[in-house]
Design a protein around this nucleic acid. Sequence first.
DNA 1: GCCGTTTTCGGCCCGACTGTTTTCAGTCG
Length: 574
Amino acid sequence: MTNQDVARILRETAQLLEVDGAQIGRYRSYEKAAQQVEALPEPVAQVAEEDRLEDIPGVGERMAEHIREILKTGKYKKHQQLLRKYPPGILEILKLQNLGPKKAALLWKKFKVKTVADVGRLAEAGKLRGLAGFGEKTEQNLRKAVAAFQQMTGRFLQHRAEEAANKLIAHIHKLGKKVERVDAAGSLRRGKETIGDLDLLLISTDVEAVAKHVLGYPEVAEKIAQGENKVSVRLRNGMQVDVRILEKKSYGAALMYFTGSKPHNIELRGLAKDKGWKLSEYTLETIKGGKWVAGRTEEEIYRKLGLDYIEPELRENAGEVEAAATGRLPKLVTLGDIRGDLQMHTTESDGKNSIEEMARAAQKRGYEYIAITDHSKAVTVANGMDEKRTLAHARRIREASKKMDGFRILAGIEVDILKKGQLDLADEVLAQLDVVVASVHSYMNLEPAEMTERLLRAIENPHLMILAHPTGRLLLRREPYRYDLEAVLDACRKHGVAVECNSFPDRLDLHDVDLRAAKERGVKVVISTDSHSTVHLPFIKYGVKTARRGWLEKDDVLNTLPCDRLLKALRRSS
DNA sequence: GCCGTTTTCGGCCCGACTGTTTTCAGTCG
């Protein structure tokens, strides 16, 4: 049972309880527990084993017991009971826009709807109008919601969302002086790996002109809603965008509010309340008399709440509020700290550019070094290299390096970890390289125990320095390999092996929570791009964001070191 | 179900928008 598995059961229980008409606080406590478990930087199973469940904020005696039940049996009795009372499809139905627990409960009671498709059929047939709280418009909206759900149960990769946001922001800036500033908030600002929808905030006094201008953006497919200070649209790529037009004096409060995360905001609101204040998207003000306390900037609000400024990437209610209150926030690694990139490919295997082209592009970015790490022979589709080619390639890399001024090209390899954990190239060849990155590209569906053994054996090879894209997941496409990550991280620490934070937008592997676990176990991290072309080098920023979400500081990341110190810090076989 | 400088009961984050109503419930972020 992973933390995600436990969190899912708790979250579903919360949703089902809400449909069931439970008291507000009761389902919220399940929701809160789910959120806390999800954000935990260590396995909840271990926390349970050490009898520390009740140390988790929002987990009391009874919730702890429920979590133990889930860990022990894989199930939770109340969850099962509710799933017998309501169809499992009700959880999907709740994802429909404009349909929440109350209406879902009513549809179940009246029509025994079991799936999203059922709701669609009833709406199409005009059976919903006339039901308490349902009118013609609701029915029409539900038809649209069902279509939208079926078309694209969609989240978007971070770089796609960023691209869409930047284009729309550029469009908004065409209004000139009418708009003072525009920011992307929401999960994009927090650097989450996938994005549901975009939140853009801007300062302007001419709300009407801005709304009209946004609606005139050529990529807009449909208007979803429009209010006094907000317009919501759906773009042609399916992405929903909420644009909020704000006054200067509440911009900080709004930026904070719409950046989230929701659990982070809830935590802050509780803190404000303890001080006799009320925090909303407009202000921080006194409860009695509504006297203004803060609101212009986020910094000001955090300060008033007695907190250090919390970077957006940390705002997940994963301990950052407490750390901010006690001056123990990490000083997060920044893009500017990165001095080199330690995984990339050239035309020698499956890359698009030569050694020299990659090196020059990296130097232009301000780096001091790179490692060229082409594939080894097991990856035949990528034209992987055998021992002879690897050594010849290394010679060419070192020749090219000599011709660079103030820049070093390291001779490396991305060597495959074979099925039983052997590395794909002979030890005496690996021993001659500067950087040995190793990864799994085959037999990805081994049983967890077998996969764990495979990785542990690979790590025992004294030449392996960096474990690349350790979980193998592809966002929105492929689940991570199943294995015991904790055991592998422990082995990495024991043998001085670093783990990669792969910056490619569909990998981001290791991801935030696992990076934090690595850090807490004393395992060093390398942030690399896995570039297959010079145009991929800028992806490093997504790796850095992910690392920041994992609470990593400069000292946790090896490629923030100058080249000579990096080479000393990497595991050496001799 | 959790929690406590309003502490063992009675709250639980706050405000806007929509569509249904004719003062408000449900949903959303």
